[in-house]
Design a protein around this nucleic acid. Structure first.
Lengths: 179, 179
DNA sequence: AATTGAATGTTATACTATAACACTCACTAT
DNA sequence: ATAGTGAGTGTTATAGTATAACATTCAATT
């Protein structure tokens, strides 16, 4: 099964990776993600149906991890018939295609910022603002493969989830404490 | 809060870390874990009550991750009144004390093999036999701290869960395929 | 026109986890 | 001694997460 494609222009890749920047143009960020998903689905011959598109759009409303039942509530105005399987099927599709990631430690989902290329993600989860930042963390991945280079364990998938405080929240928590 | 203690004899530490060895003396392995938990609770002045002890014992029955409701079923012969909160409270206690780990990606629990010292674990989860191996993976942890050495993110806790095949299962799957 | 397969609709239920309040009992401060 | 306190547990109820199973729709194929 071909899940990834590496033929996107560098400009799009850079845009998708700019989260840590000061001024985050979220509208642009979302429309890039949606456009890329459409494009990738075309190339893979899979269907980005209205429900799937809407779920992806809802997930991208913010960079916070979002729960399945939150998505269900939010999609109901658009899809009156929506029930849990509606959401879970869309999530399964989006996840298989690499457009979203499941955050295991939160039972929640986030949009993938680099779905145009194969990657193994590391998630930074802020306990304060709930935003999740995705990193490729090549050094960590390198260390991981060294850990298993003697065929003791055949890796299929990884979930690396770090909980803590993002820099903004760390700063504001410090401020709160000094009050 | 003091969760860990480093005053155990080296012999016990070595025993607790011997999982990858060929001949695994599981009885010994379990009794070490239980003895250590008792000892640690004494030192910390916390109570390893019968329920907590039994839950820990049940978790240690194997190195497979075990679900809360499985534990509930298994403890009922011993504790007729057991209900979900019975188990979840025990799990919370054991987890706070570092005697068990929650496997986020499975909603399940395993006994901690190194609860006698502070550590950050990496879990190797075999999809075939469901056994979970815990490693300290110092290189990976080192790479992780390098990843955050510029205070971009303040780490509180980590969940590193690798899914795949353990060496035994990889071998037997290969055999199955050649049939 | 019949067949197929993917997607969705629909009903029901399984699985995971916690809130809230009651009860017991050992400990201790008066 | 005794009233108060707090940790642990009992108990009821419910919240939250996820999937099984079968029905229906509809476009594409034969």
């Amino acid at each position: 099964m071909l899940y990834y494609n590496t033929h996107y222009p560098a400009a799009i890749i850079m845009t998708l990776n700019d989260l840590p920047n000061q001024k985050h143009n979220h509208k642009q960020c979302v429309s890039n993600a949606l456009a890329m998903a459409e494009q990738v689905c075309l190339e893979r011959g899979v269907q980005l149906t209205p429900i799937r598109y809407q779920v992806l759009e809802l997930i991208w409303e913010s960079h916070k991890a979002v729960k399945a039942y939150e998505l269900l509530d939010r999609i109901k105005p658009l899809q009156m018939a929506a029930k849990p399987p509606t959401i879970y099927r869309a999530l399964e599709f989006l996840s298989e295609q690499g457009f979203i990631h499941r955050v295991e430690s939160l039972n929640a989902f986030i949009g993938c910022r680099c779905s145009n290329a194969p990657h193994e993600q590391l998630l930074l989860i802020c306990k304060n603002c709930q935003e999740v930042e995705e990193r490729t963390a090549p050094k960590v991945m390198q260390a991981l493969s060294e850990e298993f280079n003697d065929a003791e364990f055949i890796v299929h998938s990884k979930a690396i989830e770090i909980h803590g405080l993002c820099s903004q929240c760390a700063a504001s928590v410090a401020t709160d404490l000094s009050d």
